[in-house]
Design a protein around this nucleic acid. Structure first.
Lengths: 338, 338
DNA sequence: TCCTCAAAACACACCGGTGTCAGTATGGTA
DNA sequence: TACCATACTGACACCGGTGTGTTTTGAGGA
């Protein structure tokens, strides 16, 4: 009867069997340096023998902090959320941290209180907030109030480095539109994202930047606003393709809307990319699987999430992590020379 | 100086301020019935006043169980994983449980050990396992060994009810193929999923069932195997469309492959659905956003995940939850009468 | 008025770790 | 040989809850 009763072995079992005190076992577990090598080996042998694993709840209680980090998001798109989860996991896999997810509803009036209650109840170590709700300063304020550390992701540098991992959407869109210009396009339509979204604003700025540097005058007639859905992209496409002269290329602020534009083009008997070039943004699963495959811009989402997680759990190491990421243009088959 | 120091109020603070013992406060929190109404109100007033929230780690330690449930998956597709997360959340939102996610890599040789270490370290209350790794009995065995309760999701009833939430893929596919038959198709191709996947096997059986009840002889020439990717669907499509007579309809075992078939058809100058009808399975985001929008079969994924979570955390209530779910046929525009 | 007994509340140990500080070897120094 | 700094190790309280057994309270009956 080595272990006292049914359950898993505890630090007391290890202490008793190796003839040392609990505290010494604790030192072994925590790799304390002031510890005799022989003692360490003796204790480690018992630990291995028993298959002892420290109880994280007891640890959390004694340390007054736990090892749970939360992911708060309002499902922007499944691909992205999952990419983020993978990225976070890659950062915490070898640590004792675990990832707790919490989808919220941006439009719910109680969202703020929901998050607050969640954080209070679970006493998380820290949270990571995804766009688009990351654009909401409220949540950061709630975290500060509750003493929960936080890092948010977004499409522009909103906070100090230790709280922010950003993609440079403005520059990325400028690059993408410049690419269209480089292919000979001069009349380039733009489908914006919904008002109130930081990403939408940044992307619009990038479009403006690119036109400006190519000395092209922006024409409001070939600019439309969507709300990041396929349907809104479809409507925007119809509007833009009805103008004369017709744009030879359209940049849509996300892939869903780009797919909508493509659909509208097809309905009007236009071929893509022969009659119309299209570029999207996000590189979601759709982009690769529609016909023709969509040229688009991709956030390095996993790397960003990884960096964000590192900022959260290991600020020292985080100094070597970048805070601003530039997206890549993924060339597929939806763009032709004009 | 109501609360002793900086931190959050504890049960001791509440006890002191309301002039009762810790245990009485504990009874209030846990809604114990043997408790004087006046006392309860007095204590509740102090709790509200202080904004006291019980510490889950201390609770977990004392109760020797925690309130974390894990989701183990090998990203089958983002849409589905996120749907499951939403479903689980809908079941635990009002409880004290939280959801911890753990993506794993099916092909990793250490997968089993990874999961084991994860479960041992975090001491989860229970886990939910998603296909396709849910088809792996190993994981269930590890859970049993560790005393972690588990529920798996899958495409056929593999376990006893308390451990399983299943979709009836066989019947769902049979229904979908019967629908094609009803539309006049007699030469119906089939793109199977990869060998070794239970879902693939079930779906193939459903195809066979439907042909049998329509008295159509299965023709191996118009059956191909893919591995659930767009590319494999494309290859399968090429193969099937090269046969004579050409099939008038093709059922693909998932949407990605259906999209691949669609692509192959387009390359051969065939119009869908005029020259070829296509039906997919899963109703992923792709299905709605390709052209033409794909008729497909949808798992009631959120409802299934919700039921699974309830089975995990509240077996009593779970008796009112179904264990077997039938999928719906989502009619869009990829099928024509023959 | 005194006693009985159930209901209500309490005191205290315990869950499994960690922090603090004191105690014990050990080797070097005077 | 006595003394002291250094290197380890241990005893004990504590983190914030819950379970157990006991005491207090108060209503009803003798």
């Amino acid at each position: 009867m080595k272990i006292k009763r049914d359950g898993k072995p505890t630090i007391n079992d290890v202490a008793r069997l190796s003839g040392v005190s609990k505290k010494t076992v604790s030192r072994v577990i925590n790799r304390s340096p002031l510890l005799n090598e022989a003692t360490r080996e003796k204790v480690e042998a018992v630990i291995a023998d028993l298959g002892y694993v420290p109880n994280p709840q007891a640890r959390a209680l004694a340390l007054r902090r736990n090892f749970l980090i939360g992911l708060i998001h309002d499902n922007p798109n499944a691909q992205m959320v999952l990419g983020v989860q993978e990225g976070i996991l890659s950062a915490i896999r070898e640590t004792e941290f675990a990832l707790v997810v919490r989808p919220v509803n941006r439009r719910s009036p109680t969202m703020r209180e929901d998050v607050r209650a969640f954080l209070e109840q679970q006493r998380l170590y820290g949270v990571l907030i995804l766009p688009p709700i990351s654009e909401n300063d409220d949540l950061a304020a709630v975290c500060d109030e509750l003493g929960v550390s936080w890092v948010r992701m977004g499409s522009a540098q909103l906070d100090a480095e230790e709280h922010m991992v950003a993609s440079n959407d403005r520059e990325a869109v400028a690059k993408a539109v410049a690419y269209l210009v480089g292919r000979g396009h001069r009349r380039i339509g733009f489908v914006a994202g919904p008002e109130g979204f930081r990403s939408a604003a940044e992307r619009a700025l990038g479009y403006g930047d690119a036109l400006a540097s190519a000395a092209i005058t922006a024409d409001p007639a070939i600019m439309a606003e969507g709300n990041y859905t396929f349907e809104s992209g479809h409507a925007a496409g119809e509007k833009l393709l009805a103008t004369t002269p017709r744009p030879s290329a359209i940049f849509a602020s996300n892939d869903e809307m780009a797919a909508g534009v493509l659909h509208a083009a097809r309905e009007q008997g236009l071929s893509v990319p022969e009659d119309l070039s299209i570029v999207g943004f996000d590189d979601t699963a759709i982009a690769a699987h529609i016909w023709p495959p969509l040229t688009t811009v991709r956030w390095p989402i996993q790397a960003m999430a990884r960096a964000a997680a590192i900022k959260l759990i290991d600020p020292a190491k985080a100094r070597h992590e970048p805070s601003l990421f530039l997206s890549d243009l993924i060339e597929r088959a939806s763009v032709n020379d004009v």
